[in-house]
């Protein structure tokens, strides 16, 4: 039996899954159904990453395949689907630090687990975090950092949220290269997550969805 769409994408069979996408579109399959299947496949990818079967190359490659499928499907979209998200999460690498590999993995894992992720990118000024948290009222903030200089930038960010009077409305998690629980205490964040799976676990716990 030929593999179905979801397995092909989850197994990263580029040629086959692109061929099948085109075939499905020609056969009149709904664009939204294909996107929903893609989402399910990415969920499988996320699970395999969490389970230690997949690593960074697989996340990157699956993201690339998803991009290609979305490009193919886009012209056939009549209306955009109203995706239901668990909750909003704001993430970003703190000021002075330009590393984004870990940040993007956390983005990926939160997204495939149903969160609406606002990824502010790297070297995010304190002010921008405060503005975004006000604008989105997200209950969870994730601060990423790779270098030791991020210790103080994280602390500054948390303190700015305190000063803005909104610290109590959110839970803050930190993670990345040199971070650990000592840094979490130093920066006065709520939790340290050692990897992207921990980020998902913490975010789910905080919004009461376990």
């Amino acid at each position: 039996m030929p593999k179905d769409f979801i397995s092909l994408l989850a197994d990263l069979e580029e040629e086959e899954v692109i061929k099948l996408t085109k075939k499905r579109l020609e056969a009149g399959d709904e664009a939204l159904t294909i996107l929903e299947d893609s989402r399910k496949a990415m969920e499988v990818v996320g699970k395999r990453f969490a389970g230690g079967q997949y690593f960074i190359p697989e996340l990157v490659y699956s993201g690339e395949l998803l991009k290609q499928i979305t490009e193919l499907v886009k012209p056939h979209l009549v209306q955009s689907g109203d995706t239901k998200h668990l909750s909003k999460v704001v993430i970003g690498t703190v000021a002075g630090d330009i590393h984004d590999i870990g940040l993007n993995i956390v983005d990926f894992m939160l997204s495939v687990n149903g969160f609406e992720v606002y990824n502010l990118g790297v070297d995010v000024p304190v002010k921008k975090f405060v503005e975004k948290m006000k604008e989105t009222s997200a209950p969870v903030l994730g601060l990423s950092g790779f270098l030791t200089l991020a210790f103080d930038a994280m602390k500054d960010t948390v303190e700015a949220l305190e000063a803005a009077g909104i610290r109590g409305k959110m839970k803050i998690m930190i993670g990345g290269g040199q971070m650990d629980d000592e840094v979490r205490k130093y920066a006065k964040a709520d939790a340290y997550g050692k990897d992207a799976m921990a980020a998902v676990f913490l975010a789910k716990k905080w919004i009461g969805d376990n």
């Binding site: 030791t148 210790f151 040199q178 971070m179 650990d180 130093y186």
Partner: peptide
């Protein structure tokens, strides 16, 4: 001996 330890301990 990690940088985080040296920074915070």
């Amino acid at each position: 001996v990690t940088a985080a330890q040296l920074y915070t301990n």
